[in-house]
Simulated scan of single mutants.
Amino acid sequence: MTQPLALSGLEVAQGNLNGNYLTGNEWSTVLWTSDLGPCVAICGYNGDTAFLIHSDSTRASGIGATDLASGLQALIPGIGVDSGYALTLIGGSTAGTAAYLREHLAEAEIVDGGWADSAYITGDGRVAPTKRKLAEALGAESITIV
């Protein structure tokens, strides 16, 4: 039987300018968000940097009134220009957000992670829609985020 894991975590608030990132490939640190509803979590990883944005709109509206592409570029300068990011979308309108991102970040690989109310990404790029799924990905009985 596996043991429970305690991970260091940073909650990401809703809004295209409230994203956060991790560097250094640390599996024991996680970015997470909840209450996605119609919103979409954009979880990105390029082999060195993991990030998460909880986006309420692709347009210049919603919390912070900044479009998603500008929010991504503010968080990760140079994203979309041969940056090699894999982006996993989790939450509400993932299909519409995927179409928008393919238009603005043509170099990124985009994966539809489906509907969920929360999203998690570890510093080494493991993405999950629930703590239970994240525990499975880490080979743990359960996880807590502190």
Rank of each mutant, 00 (worst) to 15 (best):
T2C: 06
T2F: 10
A6T: 15
L7M: 09
S8G: 13
S8P: 00
G9W: 07
L10E: 14
L10V: 15
V12Y: 11
A13G: 11
G15R: 05
G15L: 08
N18A: 11
G19I: 06
N20G: 14
Y21F: 12
L22N: 10
T23A: 10
T23M: 11
W27E: 12
W27N: 10
W27C: 09
S28D: 15
T29A: 15
T29S: 13
T29Q: 12
W32E: 14
T33D: 06
T33F: 11
G37S: 13
C39M: 12
C39Q: 15
C39S: 15
C39W: 07
A41L: 06
A41F: 09
C43I: 05
C43Y: 04
G44C: 08
Y45N: 05
N46P: 06
G47H: 03
G47F: 05
D48T: 15
D48G: 12
D48Q: 14
T49D: 04
L52Q: 11
L52N: 06
L52R: 09
I53S: 03
I53P: 03
H54V: 13
S55L: 07
S57L: 01
S57F: 04
T58W: 02
R59E: 15
G62V: 09
G62Y: 09
I63Q: 13
A69H: 10
S70C: 07
G71F: 07
G71V: 06
L75G: 02
L75V: 08
I76L: 13
I76F: 01
G78K: 00
G78P: 03
G78F: 00
G78N: 00
I79T: 00
V81Y: 07
V81C: 03
S83Y: 03
G84C: 00
Y85K: 00
L87V: 00
L87M: 10
T88Y: 08
T88G: 03
I90G: 02
I90Y: 03
G91W: 05
G91E: 04
G92M: 00
S93C: 10
T94N: 05
T94P: 04
A99D: 10
A99R: 01
L101R: 00
R102L: 01
R102Q: 10
E103M: 08
E103K: 10
E103H: 03
L105I: 02
L105Y: 00
A106I: 06
A106D: 07
A106L: 02
E109D: 13
E109M: 08
I110D: 02
V111D: 01
V111L: 08
D112M: 09
D112N: 15
G113W: 07
G113C: 12
G114Y: 04
G114P: 04
W115F: 14
A116Y: 00
A116Q: 07
D117M: 08
S118V: 06
Y120W: 13
Y120M: 11
Y120A: 03
I121E: 08
I121W: 07
T122H: 12
D124C: 10
G125L: 07
R126T: 13
P129R: 04
R132V: 12
K133I: 07
L134W: 00
A135L: 04
A137H: 11
A137V: 07
A137G: 05
L138K: 01
G139Y: 08
G139N: 07
A140C: 08
E141M: 08
E141K: 12
S142A: 11
I143S: 04
I145T: 05
V146K: 13
V146R: 14
V146C: 09
